[in-house]
Design a protein around this nucleic acid. Sequence first.
DNA 1: CGAGCGATTGAAAAGACTCAACCACCGTGG
DNA 2: CCACGGTGGTTGAGTCTTTTCAATCGCTCG
Lengths: 229, 229
Amino acid sequence: MLEKSHKHITCSTCSSRNNSLLGSLCSDEIDHVNAHKSCNYFKKQQSLFLEGSFPRGVFCINQGMVKIFQRGDEGKEQIIHIAKSGEMVGFRAMFSEEPYKVAAETLEESNICFIGKDDFLNMMDSNPVLRKGIIKELSKELSDRADFITNMAQKSVRERLAFTMILLMDIYNPEPINLSREDLANFVGTATETLIRLLKDFKEEGIIEVHTRKITVLNKEKLFSLAGK
Amino acid sequence: MLEKSHKHITCSTCSSRNNSLLGSLCSDEIDHVNAHKSCNYFKKQQSLFLEGSFPRGVFCINQGMVKIFQRGDEGKEQIIHIAKSGEMVGFRAMFSEEPYKVAAETLEESNICFIGKDDFLNMMDSNPVLRKGIIKELSKELSDRADFITNMAQKSVRERLAFTMILLMDIYNPEPINLSREDLANFVGTATETLIRLLKDFKEEGIIEVHTRKITVLNKEKLFSLAGK
DNA sequence: CGAGCGATTGAAAAGACTCAACCACCGTGG
DNA sequence: CCACGGTGGTTGAGTCTTTTCAATCGCTCG
């Protein structure tokens, strides 16, 4: 159980920061961020920002899990990405100076800090390493999304489920995958019923093990070959 | 017909530059680019770069049309984007320092300039406006791709075709859309046969007019309502 | 204990794909 | 100048995947 603290989380000792985009900050910069950011505890299924709203800064996940999604015409969610501890979310729309095209919501209780737009942009101006990191990150995500598009367009639901489970395995590692059937379906891009039937198949084929919401991958190799990679 | 020149195209008088990412360059920078870049004439269906190769710089389209695509497991292309005059292609992988995940190929004969990696990166270091432009561009494309993913996941082929035609209309404007059936199908993410049948439907419904490869949109409103926007 | 939501199953329908055949246009070479 | 071959475009029929709709189950929370 997560400590439900509204307490300040100190950047300099934040274990999630090292392998994050803010890993390159010098101690002066850290202190500055630390002094200007705010820290918040989020319950499960709480919203960070909504589609259509305007970015006022970036969110930095200290502990927890956040889904990034879009709502299609009939209100069905399409999950684009799941962010975990150490990731920053919400900076894309801030750069493009447009309202968010995606929404963000916690999947579990989380501690998440918030850095204001100006603070963050100033930091980017003065820190070339941070800047390069951000640009690199944006570029990487672009190519991830190209893969995502190609998968969606060309693969069967079964193949996409395998692919998605590989992604989720890395995200949840070493814990089992823990998502509602609906969220899982909305990530794979299929109907909930179809997803459930496929999970059953995977279970019968010995690829996964299921305990209510928790899914453990037993045969990673088979998953890879199914995903067609 | 395009002038098949291997002649140098002068940046300072390039009509495509004003509304491009390089619109912000001062005259010194322009001169520098102009002196260091190379210019090339590309035939139709000529490759700019392949999936898996390493970026050595960026391509700047003076005149012409380029498709950006990925090849799926069975070799079927998925078109991710179509770039036109004034656009730069190939810089994403350059930033992420990874091999290209996508390939680029001309759709028609084109004049395309090439700026070396070092020249370009140096320019970015010294020009904050260019830098902001690039970051903004990357962010915009990320949200475009989120839309693309949601469309792929949730819409029918018919709806996706409508959506794609709206995109293409803007790209080809004021010319009619001019793509092979296969390329069009590979953009929409469907089989060529299915695409042809839907085109026929659209034609019968008075939405489009078709002359061999050339497609003219007659009823934009209907297209919008079909696309579900 | 009952309401309600998430998960599951079944059956039917719809959408899209595959395969195979055929057409139409275009440039080439005889 | 015309027959030929090739490529891209088109059509039809059958099949399969996936969705939809409806019903049921099971658990949790008040």
